[in-house]
């Protein structure tokens, strides 16, 4: 069982939930930019939620299935088609041997996840299959996927096998077959001017009163100098009340730091482990997938919530994911 990369497109790489446990050695965490969609894609095909999947960026990627396969595509709608027919998102899909899946256009969001039942057989480096592109660590040979790469797939679970055989029977003359149900989660990631919830950062009070006000009042745009490491934003310039020396310390995914020039940077999956710039805010974990789906040019606004609210949202999201897990096992049971 394997998937062959016909065209890598703008950027495609292997990612899981990241490389934790080694940040004290300066090892970058990496992992899926939109971890929510990665988890969903895996659950839909009976995998452990942290299995590695292909993270497809924007468009142009095409993949060929060398055997009959069971996959799920989640995240942004990047116009996935097989022989001109749209492949539905957020549900398990059976794909016939030889079919080519193409990502044709960015319709919403900018990153899609392709999980295969069983997961990809990729060696773990420091307990993770994620690719850290700049450092050449992990994933497929430490690099982005290239034309000709063959990604082997591991054995799928019994539940996934049942689904696989059920859909194969329904296939008929088509090259793919999906179920008639899906996980209603795409709305979480819709584009437009997004309101992103943050809690104040450790140095928030050190910014000038006008900067503190404009951080919440005005909108910011994601510049083209944005990648998996972080998004550079343009908008009102943010200045400190008084400059001061800050000692480098740990940063996290979603930390918004402000270098001297005043343009904030949102740290994302491939961020450095430590930083020395003042941190004006920290994005609530539940809104990180939303931010990860925004592409250069998109606008966003920040709104303040308390730590307690961010924690409640986090716990609620995890309960929702558990409900999806339960729902999926019932669906599979009923086949």
């Amino acid at each position: 069982m394997s998937i062959k990369v016909i065209r890598p497109g703008l950027l495609a790489s292997i990612q899981d939930l990241g490389r934790y446990g080694y940040q004290k050695y300066g090892v970058i965490v990496s992992g899926a930019m939109d971890s929510f969609s990665l988890r969903m894609a895996n659950l839909l095909v009976g995998n452990q939620e942290g299995e590695a999947a292909i993270e497809v960026t924007m468009m142009g990627t095409s993949l060929q299935f060398e055997e009959d396969s069971l996959i799920a595509i989640t995240g942004g709608n990047l116009g996935p088609v097989i022989e001109g027919a749209s492949v539905p998102l957020w549900r398990p899909v059976f794909i016939k041997k030889g079919s080519i899946l193409q990502f044709t256009a960015c319709q919403s969001g900018c990153r899609a996840y392709v999980a295969a039942a069983g997961g990809f057989e990729i060696p773990e480096v420091m307990n993770s299959k994620s690719t850290y592109l700049r450092g050449g660590i992990g994933g497929f040979d430490g690099r982005a996927l290239q034309a000709g790469d063959v990604l082997p797939i591991q054995h799928k679970t019994r539940e996934a096998s049942r689904l696989f055989h059920y859909l194969k029977k329904e296939l008929g003359e088509r090259s793919f077959q999906s179920v008639d149900w899906y996980v209603p989660a795409g709305h979480l990631l819709n584009a437009g001017e997004r309101i992103v919830r943050v809690i104040k950062g450790a140095e928030f009070e050190r910014f000038s009163s006008s900067s503190k006000a404009s951080f919440f009042d005005q909108s910011f745009q994601i510049t083209h100098q944005s990648d998996r490491m972080g998004y550079r934003l343009s908008g009102p310039k943010l200045q400190l009340e008084q400059s001061f020396e800050l000692l480098s310390e740990a940063v996290a995914e979603g930390t918004i730091q402000v270098p001297q020039a005043g343009n904030p940077i949102v740290l994302l999956a491939d961020r450095q482990t430590t930083g020395g710039y003042p941190r004006i805010a920290q994005i609530a974990s539940v809104d990180l997938p939303v931010v990860a789906q925004l592409k250069p040019g998109a606008k966003l606004r920040f709104t303040e919530i308390s730590l307690e609210e961010a924690e409640q949202l986090y716990l609620k999201r995890e309960e929702d994911i558990e409900a999806v897990k339960t729902g999926l096992s019932l669906k599979e049971w009923s086949l």
Binding site: A250, A252, G254, T255, Q282, S285, L307, L313, Y314
Partner: peptide
Amino acid sequence: MKPLGDSALV
């Protein structure tokens, strides 16, 4: 001790 977001403490 202060929070670094909802999943870390400094």
